[in-house]
Design a protein around this nucleic acid. Structure first.
Lengths: 341, 341
DNA sequence: TTGAAAGCGCTAACAG
DNA sequence: CTGTTAGCGCTTTCAA
């Protein structure tokens, strides 16, 4: 086919000037007579005109991309977030660029450079490695940033967060209300604020219920390349090594909870008859497995769309106070926790 | 901070010309003396220079984006593919733009326009709606396209596919070899080539084993907004309505298989003691559930990286024959299928 | 309401 | 090996 049509050809065909065409085609608020507008639109249609986004961005110094960085693309929790972000981004006329960081600070740094080079309109990021260095980097990029999911301690910036502490409290309270006294919280390394907060909430409730906290927190180390499921296996094994089994385990996320259940079962233990398990996140697979997983819901879709909305607001209105929203946990009762006695 | 540095400033600081700077910074193969190169690199570093991708693309008429369209972002099968694509794309210096189509032809059409406007270097697409109209559209975009996963019938183009027919045969053969004679294939509407192929392979094996095929294929209709899991529920219900239960069900995908198992179980049936289930795809959750899911593996990660590699090759070498690769199914034996007698 | 003209930052001839 | 120059396609003053 012939070379792609540009506004020059559209202008010729419509019998008007470049500027007018640009004003029509870029939906500028600039006044153009209805009749001219119609001619331009028709000409564009007839030529199969497609705007050149690079030229637009270059000239207007305003990219149409929203960049998103998540730790993993394979975690359904992030899939839900990404899906919600995509919907929001697209409906606002932007496009989504997606990156996964594996929580690797060096990769995050490189990705930020990459994102800077495309003059993204905004950046959405979930990172556990946030520090002054990365913060400075983002600031230098001059691109509005919104943090979500993981909220680094002492962060100054826009963020869409979650009350992790409350989630930990809720898990502990529920287990206690179901008659459990010998409870364990199983987790990976406390290398991120969210886990510390959950643990603190969990421990606090145990303490204030006069339950012995010693040994109530199990933190398995993150062996190279270990995924969430394997982390769950490791947690279960740590639990199995104790002289006396707890009656319930709260696990840091649903996938790890799957690992815990699988490993327990391999040991001949029945969930929830012999031991109860409560997860965290509420991924869709939680109700597909048997027994279905009792868990604490963290609203992924809501987080994603809220973060995207905020980011898009920021594009048009970069000044102003830092805004933030903190979602509250919701207890999802299913089958993996049993009422004692 | 000051405005972002451009190559003009870098050139000044390095005491050389624009072109030289460009040649160094764009990794051109053009010869530049080692010493000059070093000066340029240092100047760029010192100024925190970040290339402007829009200007690059505009001038070189060559975008650095690889656009990807998948039906859904929430299906772990596609998550695996996307993850593999991202890795490949990034390591080749490109960036990934991700879109989900929900298999909606109109949306696909709009997305293609969007992708055309960014002069993407290549486009990767999984679509069940491929026809002359969309084919023409992609061709007009002038962007190399690679199809993956779903292979529309009679497609002419590059594609990374899968032997769905063989998968259906493999499922049937395995079930038969385990002593099953009363077998059902549960599926959604036959609105895509892949499902028809699986069914044909499945039926063929049944026929040639002199097994009664009548009623061996159950196709539930796709009620508005129904997801894979719900489709599985519907399949199970259709099976339960029969006067006599089959001894095994082959399901069109793993998530639907989860739905089938859940619904069967709700009826007091035990998998695999009372009835066997074999899935298709091999998503990671298959081995996390109980009983773990016997399934036919479709290599998601391999498909993704192969498709991405092909696309990137195409960018540098757009001419030449249409290339295609067809992956073979692999049987993954786990616990959900029982040997009869 | 319309048009002419000036570049956005960069790469790719072309000339030295 | 290095530098000069001409735009890529578009938006945006500025002037009419």
């Amino acid at each position: 086919m012939a070379d792609k049509a540009t506004i020059v050809e559209v202008a010729e065909k419509a019998g008007t000037s470049l500027s007018t065409v640009s004003r029509v085609l870029s939906n500028s608020s600039y006044p153009v007579s209805a009749e001219t507008k119609k001619r331009v639109l028709e000409a564009a249609e007839a030529l199969g005109y497609i705007p050149n986004n690079a030229a637009r961005s270059l000239r207007s110094k305003r990219g149409m991309y929203i960049a998103v960085i998540v730790p993993s693309l394979n975690n359904p929790f992030y899939s839900s977030i990404i899906s919600a972000i995509e919907r929001e981004v697209l409906s606002s006329g932007y496009m989504m660029q997606l990156y996964s960081s594996d929580n690797d600070p060096e990769l995050e740094n490189r990705l930020l450079d990459l994102i800077g080079s495309v003059q993204a309109a905004a950046i959405l990021i979930s990172s556990i490695n946030w520090d002054e260095k990365l913060e400075k980097k983002v600031r230098e990029l001059g691109i509005p940033a919104v943090f979500f999911d993981q909220i680094p301690n002492g962060i100054t910036g826009h963020f869409i967060g979650f009350d992790f502490r409350k989630a930990g409290m809720m898990a502990a309270e529920f287990l206690i209300s179901e008659g459990h006294r010998d409870i364990v919280f199983g987790c990976g390394p406390f290398d991120r604020e969210s886990r510390k907060l959950y643990r603190d909430g969990f421990s606090e409730v145990l303490s204030s219920s006069s339950i012995d906290c010693s040994g109530a927190v199990i933190s398995v180390e993150n062996r190279k390349g270990m995924n969430e499921y394997e982390m769950g296996i490791a947690i279960a094994e740590a639990v199995l090594h104790r002289e006396k089994l707890p009656t319930a385990i709260a696990v840091i996320n649903d996938i790890a909870a799957f690992g815990v259940m699988k490993r327990l079962e391999a040991e001949g233990l029945n969930v929830p008859a012999d031991i109860s398990v409560i997860g965290f996140d509420d991924i869709p697979y939680g109700f597909m497995i048997s027994p279905s997983l009792t868990t604490i819901r963290q609203p992924a879709a809501e987080t994603g769309s809220m973060a995207a909305k905020l980011a898009i607001d920021l594009v048009n209105n970069p000044e102003g106070e830092y805004s933030n929203e903190v979602f509250q946990p919701v207890l999802i009762k299913r089958e993996s926790v049993r009422r004692l006695r």
